[in-house]
Amino acid sequence: MTAAHQQAPRTAAPAPARTQRAGAAPAAPPAGGLATSHRQRSATASSGRSGPRRQRVAYLYLLPALLLYTAFVIAPWLHTLELSFYRWDGVTAGTWAGLDNYRQVLTDPQLMGSLWHALGYIGFYTVLPIAAGLVLAAVIGRARQGRNFAVARTVLFLPQIVPLVAVGVIWRWMYAQDGTVNQLLDAVGLHSWTRAWLGDFTWAYVAVGLVGSWVMLGLCLVLFQAGIQKIDTSLYEAARIDGAGPVREFLSVTLPGLRAEIGVAVTVTVISALASFDVVYVTTGGGPGDTTTVPGLLIYRLAFTGGEVGTACALAVVLSLLISLVVLAIGRLTRERA
């Protein structure tokens, strides 16, 4: 026991801080030491109980995954948590800051503003694409065959395949003063509406949000399309015999049948909304003013240009807690309904 305890900190100790960035993964601990300690512990832990031996062996199978998860997810996260209590420029020696960084995150209007922006993006990343995806899935319906369907699905799913940075660059061109969006508006006689969309204090936020909607729509559609395929056809027949129209059919059969898929879509899209970075960084860089800043962007700026790694980590911790809470709530809601 004692030996195992002394071994653990050594194997999991982060690499020398000088070459390490916030969130960087420490080297994976050699498996030997921990595996031994785990066996000792699990044996000891259940010695007073009569759990089936099979169950204990099962944990052994979890070990490789657990080790990797610990090395690359838990450990960096804990390191981030640790750094959030320091005042550190990323290079020279840091000093203990207590809760100062958290106080700054929760009182600085710019940092708080970015958290609100991220919450607002849920409307664009989650609500819009799911609503549109549901409608599209219902319209395309249960069609399995036909080349048109395959083409439509591929086209709509494409945004998911393109790297987000490329997506951002493409949309930046489209939103530019002489970009596609303004050319289209000009073509239909709406010249007075044209503007440099990403530089407009009112519209930049919406413009960036719609990029998110565009990216997420394909994912939602494919999920719902797959979900519809597994709904029992007899339900549709029964609805039709009862005289249900397409709207009624959608509300009474399709929607309830897709509950699980909607749950997945909400979870995934909410996480991308709150953790968004790439699209904002490439399109507006947070501007104009601070209208499109998101926590991800400020974490990057604070850590790498501002030399405030501690504050960046505190914001990262707050953001990950916020995401965990929201995801937990979504899980609760979808489970209770089911």
Partner: peptide, 19 residues
Amino acid sequence: ACAALLVAGLMSACGTPGT
């Protein structure tokens, strides 16, 4: 227990960052 062990190990590795 395993998770706690890892957490304990990591926390004890904490120290002032940077040099």
